[in-house]
Design a protein around this nucleic acid. Sequence first.
DNA 1: ATAATATTGCAATGTTGTTGCAATAAATTA
DNA 2: TAATTTATTGCAACAACATTGCAATATTAT
Lengths: 124, 124
Amino acid sequence: MKRRNTPTKEAVLSVITKAGQAMSQDAIEGEISIDINRATIYRVLNRFCEDGVLHKVIAEDGKQYFALCDGCDETHQMHQHFHFKCTVCETLECLPNEVNFSIPNGYHVENVNCVLTGVCKKCS
Amino acid sequence: MKRRNTPTKEAVLSVITKAGQAMSQDAIEGEISIDINRATIYRVLNRFCEDGVLHKVIAEDGKQYFALCDGCDETHQMHQHFHFKCTVCETLECLPNEVNFSIPNGYHVENVNCVLTGVCKKCS
DNA sequence: ATAATATTGCAATGTTGTTGCAATAAATTA
DNA sequence: TAATTTATTGCAACAACATTGCAATATTAT
Ligand SMILES: [Mn+2]
Ligand SMILES: [Mn+2]
Ligand SMILES: [Zn+2]
Ligand SMILES: [Zn+2]
């Protein structure tokens, strides 16, 4: 399953990179110049997640947001940082703050999803 | 909008209380003895949330889980604790661990949704 | 008992995300 | 360059979860 380079992949990654924040599928489709099918966008995004290019965040609206990874690869995924979702401008951004937790014995944590919701700096 | 007591409300709250953990709509419908409409269950649950009886958690599957509140009322809602969702038994529980975070100046946090996903003690 | 209105059931609708399959296009090989 | 392989895409259908409008019902107050 070797990856291939396509205009679609480049366009999707370009939009997310320019935005500088996490984006949902519909936001990406809205910002992208070329016309790409909804299902294709999801498949591209999920493949990027598998490859450690993006990571997925579930916000309080239950939607998936995709953000650029910083220092991840297929094996090492460190996404233990907080995210902030603004209820006004609807954007979701990665915060630098690390998530610290300690869980009871016997529990195995495989994934962390921490989202703070409120009003961002720009919208205050 | 004064609340009224109904068998439906009592049944829903009873199921969640007995379970001792957060539950989704379909889990509640599965455990409940009487037959209650799906939409009604959601309305009952959301009203409980408004009244500070329950709180809502969004898990990594994007689904809503409802858990008993401990020390909440309509005005003071302190749900800044972690939650753990087991991928094996599919249960979601409130952890005692408090969520500590500090955010950049100008940001206003109104809600916290922190879910750790993995394998719980029982399923390990 | 009557009146007011909160609650419910039902069906329809909305939203988000996934999947099967045939067509297309990127990468490899000859 | 031309042929081959197969990853990628578009389309349509499907699935899961949640919400909404409206008429019927049940609870509470008078
Ligand atoms: Mn992030
Ligand atoms: Mn909780
Ligand atoms: Zn904002
Ligand atoms: Zn478990």
